[in-house]
Each structure stands twice: as C-alpha cells, then as structure tokens.
Amino acid sequence: MGPPSSIKKKFLKKWITGLQICSSSKENMSLFERKKAIKLSADVAMASARNATTCWSRALIANASKDDNNKILVDHILGTESERLKKASIGSVMCNNKRVRSKKILKKSCSFRRVKKMAPQMVLASSIAKRLVKKRTLVLKSLVPGGEAMDESSLIEETLDYIISLRAQIDVMRRLANASEHLNLK
C-alpha cells in the first residue's frame, strides 16, 4: 500500500466519477436510495483504489457487480480494467466458496474426532478460550467483506488493510461532507 495521500487521491477521483454516474443515471431517488448509492460508490471506489489486490476489495467488487442495477456504476468506477478486475474478483470468490465448503467438511470430521479423544477436564480448560476466540473470529469474518473465505492469518492481514482503507475513506468523506455543508450554509 502506497502512502495514504495517494490512496486518498485515487479514491476521491474514482468516487467523484461514481457519484456523477449515480446522479446522472437516476433523477428521482428517495433519500435512502441516494444514501445507498453514495455508500456503494464510495465502497467500490475504495476497493478499486486498492487495485483489487486484496481479498476484501475483490469481494466488495464482486458483491457490487452481482446486482444488475449497480453494474454500470461499477464498470465506470473501475474504468478500463473493469472486466479483468471483475473476472478476477468473481473467480476468486467462487473458488473461495469452494474452499470454504471443503474446509468446513474437514473441520467437522476433525472436531468430531478430537472431541472423542479429549479428556473432560481438557475440554473444559481449553475449549472456553478457544470458543471465545472462534466466536470473535466469526464476527470479524462477517464484518470484513469476503472474510468468510479467509483463513485466520489472511483474515488478520486483510483486516489490517481494510481498517487502513476505511480510515482513508472516512477521512475523504468527512472532508467532502464538511465542505459541502459549509458551502451550503453560507
């Protein structure tokens, strides 16, 4: 990841183009729809600003391009390399899903065996801490886009990246909001 300022610049550029498309495509939108459009464009812009090198950005793009209504927007934000990125992201998500399924099966069989093997005291001692961590890991997986397909180490890595990107996004958004607010009020 480059310096944060360059990411912000990239994000802003893509976001602005996304917003243009939003505003030009639909004239009459409800407040909620508009908010959704803004959020979606911001997310996709952020993901494409990261060049879809990370899992979360790919998952975001794949999720966004699933919906037909958003396809134009995603295409425009992604720009020239939209096809490649989309293909890559969808493909990775697909194969991730497959991997998740096989992993789940494996886990089931493993845990079955382990439970049988362990002594009752051992189960009590270690499983509480393990369960706590597991529960939280699951929550984190649901929070990070595309997190269901990740293993633990890559999940933490992606979370790092995602947090940094979210910070940049929030910073840019806040500035834009403040600016428009000031301008509108004067």
């Binding site: 407040l31 508009r34 803004i38 959020k39 979210l166 958004m173 909001a177 428009s180």
Partner: peptide, 21 residues
C-alpha cells in the same frame, strides 16, 4: 468505522440532495 461510513454517506445525502458532484 463502517458505521462512520454509513453516517457520512447519510450526511452527504442530507447536505447534498442531488448527488451532484
């Protein structure tokens, strides 16, 4: 952070009704 993004997008909608950036 995610809630902040939501909030900010909401705020932008409120501030800027036509998304005309």
């Amino acid at each position: 952070l995610q809630r902040q993004v939501e909030f900010l997008s909401m705020k932008l909608v409120a501030v800027n009704p036509r998304l005309d950036f």
